[in-house]
Design a protein around this nucleic acid. Structure first.
Length: 500
RNA sequence: GCGGCGUUGGUAAAUCGGUUAAUACGCCACCCUUUCACGGUGGAAUGACGGGUUCGACUCCCGUACGCCGUACCA
């Protein structure tokens, strides 16, 4: 039985980026497809990065999407406690164990000394020297100091670093990329335990995954370079046989080809987060897909297709369909550029797949004046021209309130004086009717009056449309008439006439 | 700089050695619609470059170029 774990930190500002949503989605799909357990864990290692409210926000987003985990940091199961701060002592114990076995060491360098080292060894060819094979013997650590000095220094602030072996090749099979290997001597000695006693991601992730008995890990490709550190840790801690399988997902890119970020959202005008988020510290606001008018199933569908396909050419999937079709081996290797136009197309398609009753509650916020009786038929009539939920406001608002402004110029462009008489007669005829039963009858009556006046139906359609809806848009005129009824239609025609 | 990962039309992409290299979004044209959309039909547009291997390469191998990610006591 597989146990899939997704683990991530809120973004530095606290929002939930769609790249994060996709990572959760692929975890979810894999777990559900194989009947496994889906575990969600949110990082709380770095206080400076942990934004108030961010955790609740993430769960709110996942609830909206329908990607609820079986286990999470908020619902500790038999494997708790889950908060890292409550487990500090345990992480230290594993760090000490690594030191005892010669796979890690204490380091006492101050931040100043570290920057000084980087300055000192920096060359034109090597702008950022690592704390590793080349430099560690020149630094202040338990490798270079004698036992007494180390014992003394241990009373002060210190960190634990992994000792990367030289001349060794670490290799593993990534579920997406196949064989991947690294020369360990070229990887730096990552800090495992920080001066405040908290573990870094590198230590925490393997200790936690081991204790939670995780079998599969899906994460972004940006983690690939630190995979050798994790591999070695699993080995050094003696858990090599329990190590999970890894899958490094391709990145989601912005239109310029770099990793999709908030910056792209504001630059190109599309949402980047799942739902609206305001950074409580800076007050920075970032728009979400939800509030922009996306259906959660459409967002999930489009994210799923950004890096994966089932090979058949099918693009439209429900979440359940994704679960049954998902195949990790068909995930692409290269990053995918997010295309907002295509994203909107997905949403349009998913709106068309819903019926009026399903759409009604989602659409109501955009139609505050909506009449309950009329709402469903109106939604049915206009949905095909709506791509985002707010479009229902602009496409259907006129059914419930007369247009505030009329495109008078549009009427006057081809206006002829006899029209006035015709429209007055038309309004009068409608005022004598209580209700319309059939669009064909409405049309027949309209054509009849036009003939009486010696006018052609065609030349009268556009003016009538504008009188009813305010502009050159909307469904068929007679469909509109049937829904708003003769009294209201007559009222709008007369109102328009006064403005001409 | 070093390391890793990538590279099929503008974008997402199929192809698992043999095809006129699918399809979708976007774009253009026409049709439908006396509105705007939807829809329909058609069109322009693609294998980074150079070597191999092979009867045959977009598919396999090597190199080059380019791009991205990483190179923090952030994740």
């Amino acid at each position: 039985m597989s146990k899939v774990r997704v683990r991530f930190a809120p973004s530095p500002t606290g929002g939930l980026h769609i790249g994060g949503v996709r990572t959760v989605l692929y975890n979810y799909l894999f777990a559900r497809h194989h009947g496994g357990t889906f575990v969600l864990r949110i990082e709380d290692t770095d206080q400076t990065r942990f934004v108030p409210g961010a955790e609740d926000y993430i769960f709110k987003c996942l609830r909206w999407c329908g990607l609820e985990p079986d286990e999470s940091v908020q619902k500790p199961g038999a494997f708790g406690p889950y908060r890292q701060s409550e487990r500090k002592a345990m992480y230290r114990q594993f760090a000490e164990q690594l030191i005892a076995s010669g796979h890690a060491y204490y380091a006492f360098d101050t931040p100043e000394e570290l920057t000084q080292m980087r300055e000192q060894f920096k060359t034109a060819e090597n702008p950022s020297p690592q704390y590793g094979a080349q430099t560690r013997m020149k630094m202040r650590n338990s490798l270079t100091m004698d036992a007494a000095a180390v014992a003394e220094a241990l009373k002060g602030p210190h960190v634990v670093r992994i000792l990367m072996p030289e001349g060794e090749r670490v290799q593993f099979t990534d579920m997406i990329r196949g064989e991947v290997s690294f020369d360990t001597g070229l990887v730096d000695d990552k800090v495992l335990l920080k001066a405040d006693g908290m573990p870094t991601y590198h230590l925490a992730v393997v200790v936690d995954d081991h204790q939670m008995e995780i079998t599969h890990v899906f994460r972004g490709e940006e983690w690939l370079p630190s995979a050798p550190v994790h591999l070695l840790l699993w080995r050094y801690l003696g858990w090599a046989d329990k190590m999970p399988q890894w899958a490094h997902l391709p990145l989601i890119l912005g239109p310029d080809g770099s990793k999709l970020s908030k910056r792209h959202g504001s630059k190109y005008g599309f949402p980047i987060f799942a739902m609206n988020w305001t950074d409580p510290r800076s007050g920075d606001f970032t728009e979400g897909f939800a509030e922009r008018g996306f259906l959660p199933q459409a967002m999930l569908n489009l994210l799923a297709m950004l890096g994966w396909n089932d090979g058949t050419g099918q693009e439209l999937f429900s979440l359940d369909e994704l679960v049954t079709h998902f195949d990790i081996s068909r995930v692409n290797h290269s990053g995918a550029v997010f295309d907002f136009e295509k994203a909107k197309w997905f949403n349009h398609q998913h709106i068309q797949r819903m019926n009026a009753a399903q759409l009604a509650p989602l659409v109501k916020p955009y139609l505050p004046e909506a009449d309950e009786q009329l709402l469903l038929p109106v939604i049915e009539l206009v949905k095909e021209r709506c791509t985002l939920l707010p479009d229902f406001g602009s496409q259907a608002g006129f059914f419930f309130t007369a247009p505030q402004e009329l495109d008078i110029a549009g009427i006057q462009a081809k206006w002829k004086e006899p029209y006035r008489n015709f429209f007055e007669t038309l309004a009068t005829s409608w005022e004598g009717i209580s209700t319309w039963s059939d669009t064909a009858d409405i049309e027949a009556g309209f054509v009849g009056l036009a003939q009486d006046a010696g006018l052609k139906k065609g030349e009268l359609m556009l003016p009538l449309r504008i009188m009813l809806v305010g502009g050159k848009f909307g469904p068929g005129v007679f469909d509109i008439l049937k829904l708003i009824g003769p009294m209201e239609a007559a009222r709008r025609v007369r109102m328009a006439l006064t403005k001409l």
